[in-house]
């Protein structure tokens, strides 16, 4: 897994830059520093109860179903769905 965002300590100092690969040793050190969450690239971990891509795309369709005649909102929907699919495909490619 690769860091998508830098890790900062509570004082705002950068501990680890974006793009750093997370090795077991580095993860151990971060735990030692009380870092409880980090942002990584793609979608490498499927959490329990997480929806499938198809389910999420369908939910987006439902949310936008009453504004189908409004072109800018249909474009917004298309981009939200494309972003979601791209993130999930990165995950599939990583496997």
């Amino acid at each position: 897994m690769v860091l998508a965002k830098e890790i900062l300590n509570p004082e705002g100092m950068v501990l680890c830059g974006a793009g750093t690969a997370l090795t077991p040793a580095l993860i151990e050190r971060l735990i030692g520093m009380d870092i409880v969450d980090v942002t990584v690239e793609g979608h490498p971990v499927i959490l329990e109860g997480e929806k499938t891509l198809q389910e999420e795309l369908h939910e987006i369709d439902v949310r936008f179903q009453r504004v189908e005649d409004i072109a800018p909102l249909m474009y917004l929907k298309k981009r939200i769905q494309a972003k979601l699919a791209a993130a999930r495909n990165t995950e599939a490619a990583a496997k």
């Binding site: 936008f64 179903q65 009453r66």
Partner: peptide
């Protein structure tokens, strides 16, 4: 926000 629908623009 109380319902699921995106409001009109």
């Amino acid at each position: 926000a109380g319902d699921i629908w995106v409001p009109p623009l």
